[in-house]
Design a protein around this nucleic acid. Structure first.
Lengths: 255, 255
DNA sequence: CTCTCAAAGTTGTATATACAGGCTAGACCA
DNA sequence: TGGTCTAGCCTGTATATACAACTTTGAGAG
């Protein structure tokens, strides 16, 4: 579990990452070429190639055929926040998730919904309104519109057992999404559903999801500001999927 | 620029992504093994290996030595939000960024700051307080504490020309970060600095940044709720760096 | 019938080799 | 002096081969 077990290409990557991290190699500096690594480290060129290629994919370096490999510009401060499905998020905290369906109806799309879904005013859409609870406490009001043609059996679903999100991703995989996060003052209806104080702001996530190249659902997710936050952990390039599972200990720091 | 020019390993990737995207291959289904691809597509095993390995890195499939390659669980709803440096963000919008330094002093770390930075109460920290403006309008109040030992020349910097973020990333590359987003009601001081209405909520980003394995700076970034939002565009796995540059057209949809 | 173990299939890594194509410096020519 | 062009280095891709390690299956021994 210690050192010698790592594969050679990984050792090469670690070596170069180490030099960059230590400041020995700075942005736009040239890093050893494949052939130089071959001679210095006594490996084959394909192994050196794999190391440098993966470092490129992970954003550490930039390669130019004919010129060489250079330290990348260290993305000037772009941090990542992962926004999870509310049910998954609650479950990951080890808490219990439940939801109450307030409305589940077929409607005609009006103004902003029609615009968001790229459909004509008056087209059929399903409207879902439900409250998600964490250990019994309201934590999210989900106000969702779904293209009627995309989910014909939407009215037959029991959304207290399967969340709309899970239902929709089961219909069609591999979707694209766009989202916006805002701080707003909720209206009385939202406040009531989420059991919020009069002067409490709300964290709102607007999310529009695509399937097969067209938007199919648009959701407004309201959260009580005093009981909800988005948390994210960012580690340098080489960590595409470890964001899940990192623990955030930044809890007691209220302004 | 059309079809035949793509390298073989990319054609293999596209072929398998196509089958997944079309629903022909569903999560946990087995995808062709390397040797099967070798025979079917008339390529060498290393080429098939590269295609499947990259699909693994990009999250499309999951591989188990001895068993095979299987379609991954299509991340059950994990969406990504990129949070950029405020100056970069403003510049990307084609607007002008300026900032006003309100405080730049050496202090002794108290309570929450000491805790966030993992240092003793009373340790030396620099305190920076500045307002960032977009086309003259206040858009962010940056309240930052920096470990004194990490940036000894912090007091000599002119933070109206180089943002604290740019200054700090120049000192040490490759850092780790943790952040939390909240909706809160700002106090009078914050409201005043950001020229906010009395009943306007604030979107707050708490960000703690590591270097060399230890936290070195802790920032509270306050934004006026009516003039600021976080936006993100999510495209399926194979898009590690294209998140920058996607246009969000979800603007006029107020709750 | 049950246990053991070997065979076959699978991924993971590593090497040697080959050719195509981009880029640059310096030799060479006019 | 000035322009051209080639030799040499670099990355990008592709192949053939080899061995290690893991998993399942089934044959064979007891």
């Amino acid at each position: 579990m210690s050192a010698a077990s790592k594969p050679m290409y990984q050792q090469l990557k670690d070596l170069i990452i180490g030099r960059i991290s230590a400041g020995e190699l700075r942005p736009s500096d040239r890093v050893p070429s494949e052939n130089e690594l071959v001679e210095a480290m006594n490996v084959s060129r394909m192994t050196a190639n794999r190391a440098l290629r993966e470092l490129t994919d992970e954003g550490y370096v930039r390669r130019v055929a004919g010129r060489g490999t250079f330290v990348a510009d260290l993305r000037a401060g772009s941090h990542v926040l992962e926004v999870h499905n509310i049910a998954d998020e609650i479950e990951r905290r080890g808490h219990s998730h439940s939801s109450v369906v307030i409305r589940q109806s077929l409607q005609h799309a009006r103004g902003e919904v029609a615009k968001a879904l790229h459909i004509e005013q008056g087209s059929d859409v399903f409207h879902l309104l439900l409250v998600h609870r964490e250990n019994g406490t309201p934590i999210q009001l989900e106000d969702r519109h779904v293209l009627a043609g995309f989910a014909p059996d939407c009215m037959e679903q029991d959304f207290t057992t399967v969340t709309p999100s899970a239902y929709l991703t089961a219909i069609s995989p591999l979707q694209e999404a766009e989202q916006v996060v805002r701080a707003v003052m909720p209206n009385a209806a939202v406040r009531s559903h989420l059991q919020m104080r009069d002067d409490e702001p709300s964290l709102v996530v607007l999310r529009r999801t695509w399937a097969h190249g067209a938007p199919v659902t648009f959701a407004r997710l309201h959260h009580p500001g005093s009981r909800y936050e988005l948390a994210g952990h960012y580690t340098p390039p080489g960590t595409p999927k470890s964001a899940t599972g990192t623990v955030v200990e930044l809890e007691k720091l209220r302004q």
